[in-house]
Design a protein around this nucleic acid. Structure first.
Lengths: 329, 329
DNA sequence: CTGAAAGCGCTTACAG
DNA sequence: CTGAAAGCGCTTACAG
């Protein structure tokens, strides 16, 4: 196989120095190099199929094209999975590589990984500790926290998006004429941070319609626990249940069927996430979710701006929300 | 902050040359360096908290510590998600970094990514094309295909593991006294490769018990389609259904309930994967799955052996299988 | 057994 | 506007 093209080879072919090639390809001392030289260089690079050696770039600059991607040690659900793949492919399109790092039960040794990879940035689906933040800050590494990270610590639009999703759930139930709403909450401590935020936003939305506060039921994903929740909701006159996620909504649907309660005429149910399973149940589940492609586009835009030390853009929340009305409401 | 330790700093502290430090730390010309020198060097490295600069290593050797991790553009289910995180954390433990690469609808430009990252190895959850294999082979990059890759192309133990799981499904149903078994098959073309293998193994197992061939029903994850499947199974005297995965099993359970068929007394159902949702249904779903930790340990062992050009180890399949009997059988 | 030195492929002050 | 050259931190023949 032919030797891989280097800057020097491009320089020779273009009849200029390696310095000039580097300047042109990196568009560096902007406006100082004439168009004619640029064309020459670019053609030579294209002819040779030149791609930079990232190791050499990293060694020279002290920064790699690696973006650390910190993932919680949870069962990866469809939504997180979608986010992971979307982040991976969008970073790839920008010439970055997403390096997966899973937080185990034990504390993650972030310092040594940061040392070993010299990442350009980090995306974390979990909260980082103050020390970890300090670690990144001291090396000038851009950080974005999202998903399972505490939403109150996040940038404005992440928070607004999650809030809008919760509001959308309630808005839909109110439009369908419900006045006493229930809320299905998990008990798993790993989910509770996000779940508490969602519940708070749901309460906020319900209050804005001047309705009574929701009847909250907490349960794990076991049939018997959902059965108890159903009983409690019925006893308190609840006609519609907004759920922390589709899994709790499905559990609620199952329990309703076991109790002989018709959905949606006696009890409406709405979830969050739009997982593929929404259609296996009868009736299929109404749900609200994030348009992950758009969401990640915004996230990556923020990250790239942060890497380049440019000001953050503003993002329109509305197109990031996907609402699908199905039979359960 | 203090400057990061380099080989030169370690050498100075130990009172030896950088060459010696490199030899000791990489354990290279084995047995040529006296223990006393080694101890000296190792202590100096530890004192300084030395970690090698991977960019410099990569530049020098032409090989990075990156392992390309090629992921299908599918909704990531729990099993794939678990595999991804497990692979990520185990590679990390061995000093490698898992770089996610998602295959989009369009063809993946693997060549440029390989060029850009000079990976030490690649793990692919999908089949690679002959050209892609050639690309890796020409650069001496170790490759492991697994999960969604066609199992007949895989190494012996991957295949045996998947086969054993399918056999275990059938074995359990036979033990419970069933003689006419049904099989639930997906229609999604992205799943059909793996699904066909599983079905073939199930048929093989059924034949080994001298039972009639299974009644195969193909359906998407929609309630109405599963309803049709149930009807067909009942019409042919099926008393137990083995399913391609837990999702199809859950869909089957739902359809059985709608048809007023009792599970398991009138119809037993068994899945594959042991997803967290197995317990939200009544009765909870019996399932067989891979013990992902063990499975990935074997996979990584193969990969490391391949990178080091060492002979492959053999692996015991039995501990990689997890069978959980629940109420549905 | 150990060290001096070349060189991997870049980027970037600096000189002209 | 362009080029010569240093140097990032390693590994590894090679010499002693």
């Amino acid at each position: 196989m032919p030797k891989r093209a280097t800057l020097a080879m491009v320089a020779q072919r273009a009849g200029v120095s390696v310095a000039t090639v580097s300047y042109v390809l990196n568009d560096k001392p902007s406006g100082r190099i004439p168009e004619s030289t640029k064309t020459l260089v670019r053609r030579a690079a294209a002819d040779l199929g030149y791609t930079p050696n990232v190791a050499a770039q990293a060694l020279r600059t002290g920064k790699s094209r690696v973006v650390l991607f910190i993932i919680p040690h949870l069962p990866i659900n469809f939504t997180i999975g979608e986010m992971m793949t979307e982040i991976g492919s969008q970073l790839d399109a920008h010439g970055y590589v997403a390096a997966m790092l899973t937080t185990g039960e034990r504390k993650l040794d972030l310092a040594s990984t940061v040392h070993a990879t010299s990442p350009a940035a980090a995306i974390s689906l979990v909260d980082l500790t103050p020390e970890e933040h300090k670690l990144f800050a001291s090396r000038g590494i851009a950080v974005v926290e999202t998903a399972f990270a505490s939403l109150d610590k996040q940038g404005v639009w992440h928070r607004q998006l999650q809030r809008a999703i919760s509001h959308r759930q309630i808005e839909h139930l109110v439009e369908r004429g419900h006045t006493q709403i229930g809320w299905a909450q998990p008990v798993d401590p790993r989910l509770i941070g996000l779940a508490n935020m969602r519940m708070a936003w749901a309460k906020e939305a319900i209050k804005s319609y001047r309705l009574k506060p929701p009847v909250v039921q907490r349960f794990a994903l076991k049939g018997a626990e959902a059965d108890r929740a159903i009983k409690a909701w019925r006893a308190k006159g609840v006609t519609a249940v907004a759920c922390y996620s589709d899994l709790w909504a499905m559990s609620t649907l199952e329990a309703a069927r076991r109790a002989g309660i018709d959905v949606p005429s006696e009890l409406a149910v709405i979830g969050i996430d739009n997982i593929p399973l929404t259609e296996i149940v009868e009736p299929p589940l109404t749900s609200v979710s994030v348009n992950m492609k758009r969401n990640v586009e915004a996230l990556i835009a923020d990250l790239l701006a942060s890497i380049a030390d440019e000001p953050q853009l503003t993002h329109d929340i509305e197109p990031m929300i996907k609402f699908v009305k199905r039979g359960s409401t």
